[in-house]
Design a protein around this nucleic acid. Structure first.
Length: 230
DNA sequence: GGCCAGGACACCA
DNA sequence: TGGTGTCATGGC
């Protein structure tokens, strides 16, 4: 492929991604997301939401808040059995407790109150998070984007499902990094865009796709491959 | 009562 | 390297 062809593909990809973004934004409005009041709450939520509905995660976070444990030091020092009981509504509480503690110990080791970690370069932050046992690429990127406002695109099950239905079937089973590159290469490195785009994918998936799985009459119907099959 | 949900990891062929 | 089982709960 010539450099001219590559530039053309790049431009077409960017145009398509921005078109989807614009359609979602005009349909759902700005989301101003993630559902968390503090960076620490976002970090906890990112671990607890692994393969779990957010409604369950919200209950567990509410338990931690009521117990005064929605802060780094108190949560690290709390008795394991007590924390596991508070995490129970989010499911997988044994494994999530271990993963959360691994992550909190790592962050605590970078400096007081998340500041040390916050000052590191993005690449160092991401590789550090990925070295924590129990933190995979989606959890790491959710933390970087929504807790530390870094320009990374979060790839989750909603993202794969939606873009598979928009005609990019390969996205469903491709590696995390391949799908992330598909988004990040054409798009500008912009935290606000990454934040809003992922939030819109989630809200659209929850509120529209689930109730109207054939895409007919949804805001993406005109460009959705599934809509043709109705 | 069964199915699914904003993953990650260990294990095996 | 890719496929499969495991981890647990709440909502629909």
């Amino acid at each position: 492929m010539s450099s001219t062809d590559e530039a053309s593909d790049h431009s077409a990809a960017r145009a398509e991604l921005l078109k989807v973004f614009d359609l979602l934004l005009s349909s759902h409005g700005p989301q101003d997301w993630w559902p968390g009041d503090t960076a620490f709450e976002v970090i906890v939520g990112a671990v607890l939401t692994q393969n779990t509905a957010w409604s369950n995660v919200a209950q567990a976070i509410g338990n931690l808040r009521e117990a005064g444990l929605l802060e780094l030091e108190p949560l690290l020092r709390a008795a394991p059995d007590r924390v596991k009981a508070l995490l129970a509504p989010a499911g997988y509480y044994n494994i999530k407790y271990d993963r959360l503690m691994n992550l909190l110990r790592f962050l605590d080791g970078q400096g007081p109150s998340l500041d040390g970690f916050a000052r590191q370069p993005l690449e160092e932050q991401r590789s550090g998070l990925l070295d924590v046992k129990g933190v995979g690429p989606e959890t790491a990127d959710s933390i970087l984007l929504y807790a530390f406002q870094r320009p990374v695109f979060v790839v989750d099950a909603y993202t794969r499902r939606l873009f598979s239905r928009l005609g990019h079937e390969w996205v469903e089973k491709a590696s995390y990094d391949e799908v992330q590159t598909f988004f990040m290469e054409p798009l500008p490195r912009d935290t606000g865009l990454c934040n809003e785009y992922h939030a819109l994918i989630v809200i659209h998936s929850k509120e529209v796709c689930k109730k109207n799985p054939l895409c007919k009459a949804c805001c993406l119907g005109s460009i959705c491959a599934s809509a043709d099959k109705v």
